[in-house]
Design a protein around this nucleic acid. Structure first.
Lengths: 342, 342
DNA sequence: AACATAGCCGAAAAGGTTTTAGGATGTGCT
DNA sequence: AGCACATCCTAAAACCTTTTCGGCTATGTT
C-alpha cells in the first residue's frame, strides 16, 4: 500500500563513475587512487580530482570480498554497563589507530546462547578477529565452536591457556596497595573486600597477605573481611574492624565503593583520615574516588591500556604473530586518604 | 624474512561448496536456504543438510554488495566513558533485535575531525544508517557533509529540526521532581544544580520553577544554585542553603552526585533526612544513588529506552518512514531520602 | 628505417551471493 | 501421439573492487 520513496535511491559513486569522468579505465583509476602500479602523474591527478569531485569512497564490501580482509573486528562484551568493559573497549577502539579498522560491538549480556549467536553474525560478516571482554577476572570458557580468526580475551582470561589473554595482575595490585600503606608508615592494616567468590577478591587478598608477610606483619584480624563490593558492606565492616581492633591504622579496601563506606564510618566514629588512619581503595573509579572527603587514594588497573594492548595483540595475531598472554600491573593513584605519617 | 603461516589458510565454506555437496546449482542452493523460489521439498532438505554439515554461513559482504543493504548501522558517540552514552548504546543495540543488524561502534571523543573521519569509514562500509549519541543535551551541529543514509540523533538533538532527534524531557524532569516533593508535603524547596552553561541544568531549573509557580510557591533563594555537577558543589551549596534559609524542607539536586554532597552536609549540620528535610537527585545513577545513607530518591531518564527508540526510528527510516522527533519523560525512582511527612 | 625497450594503460578474472529469464522434465489432456 | 502446461532447476548477469597480464605508444638505438 505504501508508495515507493520518491527519492531516486541515491547511488553512491563507484570506481566506474570516477574512471569515466577521468576518461580512464577502472583498472587505472584503482591504481591511481591506491598509489599502486604504473600510472603517469598527470593521469593520477586527473583521477584523484575526479574522485574528489564525486566524493568517491571505495566500497569496503567489494574490497573485503576480494581481499579476504575486511578491516573489521568484533568486540564481544558480557556487560556493557559494567564499568570495567568501557575503558577496555575504548582502548581497543583506539588501538585500531588510523581508522583502518572498524569495530563491531556486541553485548552478550552474559548469556552463552546470545554469545554464540553474536559470534555467528560476526563471522558471517567476516571480521578479521575477535576481542572478548569479560566483566570479572575469573577465567571464562573459551568461545564455543571453531573460530577461524584470532581471538584475544581481555580482563577475564580464557580458561584455555593456549588462547591469548590480556589480564590485570590483581595479586600485584594487592601488593602495591599494602606497600603504599607501609611506605606511609602504617603497620596495623586491615583488608575489607568483596565476595570471596570472585577471583579478583582472592587475588588481591593474596597479594596483600604476601606483602604484609614480607614486612613481617599480619593482617588485622588475621584474614580479609570478605563481603560484598558495595558501600554498605564497607560501612558495616569498618564498624567491626574499629571495634574489634581499635589499634588499626590503615584499611585496604577491595573496591572504591567499599572504601567510601569505610570513610563514612570512620568519620562517624571520629577517626581522622588520614591522620589517625589511612584508607586505600581499588579501581580508581573517578566518580567515587575523586570527590570523597578526603579524596581517596586508589589502585588504578590501567584498563584502557589493557584494551589497547588487546587490540595490538589482535592485529599482530591477524598478521600471523604467535599467540602470547600478558598480565599488567596497576599503579597507585595517590590522593588525600593516605598522607604519610610525619 | 618471515615465513608464510603454515596453516593452509582455512577457507570458509561457500554456497558453491554447499551446492556441490547437495548436487545442485548454486542458484538452487541459494533459494533453498533462503526459502525463496520454487524448489522441491526433498531438494531443499538435501541442501539444508549439506549447509548444516559444512556449517555454512552466507558471506554477508557478498550479500550486502549485491543487495545494497548491509544490515549494519553506525553508532557514533562523543564520549564513551560518559555514563549517558552507555545505556543508550545498550538500548540501541537491543533494538536491532533478532540479531539481523550489527553495530559499528565509533567514539569521536568530541572531536569534529575524528567524527568526520569515522563517518567516512562507516559510509565506505555501507552502513544502512547512523545513530549519533551526544553527551549533553545541548543541540549539536548536524553531521557534516551529505549523508546518504538516515541519521538519528539521541540525547543531544541535532540543531537542525528537520533531523530525527530522540531526546529527554528535562523540563518535565524538573517538574516531576518538584511535584514529588510537593506530594511528600514539602513547601520550602531549594534547587542546587550544575553549570548554567548546560541546557540540561537550565531546563530542569525551568521545569522546577514552573511546578513551584503552579503550586503558588517560589524557589528558596528565588533562583537555582548553579555550580558544578559534583559532590563538592553539593556540599558547599547545601551549607549556604541551610545557613541562609534554615526553614528549607526539601532540596532538588540537578545530579545524584550533587545530592550525595548535599546529604553529607545535611548529616554534618544535623538535619535529619528525610524527616526534617527531603532530598531528590537526578539521573538515578545506581552506584551513587542506591547505596547512600539514606538511599537517594532520583529522577530516572530511561536512557536505555531512549536508545531503543532511536534504534527503532532508525530502522523505520531505513525502511522509508518519514522522520519525526520525540521527547521522553523521566520517572521518579523513590528511595528513602523523600519519605512523605506524616 | 627498423627494432628493442620502457612506460602506461586496459581487458578480464576473481571474490560469493541473489535474481531473472529461460531450459529441461514430466504430467495431464485431447 | 501430440500438445499445453506446471514444476523444478540452471546459466548467467549483477554488485564493486583489485590484480595480473598483455598490448599499445613513444622514445631511443643501431
Amino acid at each position: 500500500m505504501t508508495t515507493e520513496p520518491e527519492v531516486p535511491a541515491y547511488r553512491p559513486p563507484t570506481l566506474t563513475d570516477v574512471a569515466r569522468l577521468a576518461g580512464v579505465s577502472v583498472a587505472t583509476a584503482s591504481k591511481a587512487i591506491n598509489g599502486r602500479g604504473e600510472v603517469k602523474t598527470t593521469t593520477r591527478t586527473r583521477v584523484l580530482e575526479a574522485a574528489e569531485l564525486l566524493s568517491f569512497a571505495p566500497n569496503a564490501l567489494a574490497r573485503g570480498l576480494l581481499s579476504g580482509r575486511t578491516g573489521t573486528v568484533g568486540l564481544l562484551t558480557s556487560d556493557l554497563e559494567g564499568r570495567f568493559s568501557i575503558p577496555i573497549l575504548m582502548g581497543a577502539e583506539d588501538a585500531s589507530g588510523a581508522g583502518q579498522v572498524s569495530v563491531f560491538l556486541c553485548d552478550a549480556r552474559g548469556d552463552a546462547i546470545r554469545e554464540k549467536h553474536h559470534v555467528q553474525a560476526l563471522l558471517s560478516r567476516r571480521v578479521d578477529g575477535l576481542i572478548v571482554v569479560g566483566s570479572r577476572t575469573d577465567p571464562r570458557p573459551p568461545l564455543a565452536g571453531t573460530i577461524p580468526v584470532p581471538v584475544v580475551y581481555v580482563y577475564a582470561p580464557s580458561a584455555n591457556p593456549a588462547d591469548i589473554s590480556i589480564t590485570v595482575d590483581n595479586v600485584g595490585g594487592g601488593r602495591l596497595a599494602i606497600e603504599h600503606l607501609l611506605a606511609c608508615g602504617r603497620r596495623t592494616i586491615a583488608h575489607i573486600t568483596g565476595e570471596a567468590g570472585f577471583q579478583a577478591a582472592r587475588d588481591r587478598a593474596e597479594g596483600a597477605a604476601a606483602a604484609l608477610a614480607a614486612a613481617g606483619l599480619r593482617m588485622v584480624g588475621d584474614r580479609p573481611y570478605f563481603g560484598s563490593w558495595d558501600e554498605s558492606w564497607g560501612r558495616a565492616a569498618a564498624h567491626m574492624v574499629v571495634e574489634q581492633h581499635p589499634e588499626v591504622d590503615a584499611i585496604f579496601c577491595g573496591s572504591d565503593q567499599i572504601a567510601r563506606g569505610v570513610l563514612e564510618t570512620l568519620r562517624d566514629v571520629g577517626r581522622d583520615v588520614p591522620r589517625s588512619i589511612s584508607v586505600i581503595g581499588f579501581d580508581n573509579w573517578e566518580a567515587i574516588a575523586a570527590d570523597s572527603r578526603p579524596r581517596l587514594t586508589s589502585i588504578d588497573m590501567n584498563l584502557k591500556h589493557l584494551g589497547e594492548v588487546a587490540g595490538q595483540r589482535l592485529f599482530a595475531a591477524i598478521d600471523g604473530a604467535a599467540p602470547s598472554s600478558e598480565e599488567f600491573p596497576g599503579r597507585v593513584v595517590m590522593r588525600e586518604s593516605t598522607l604519610p605519617v610525619g
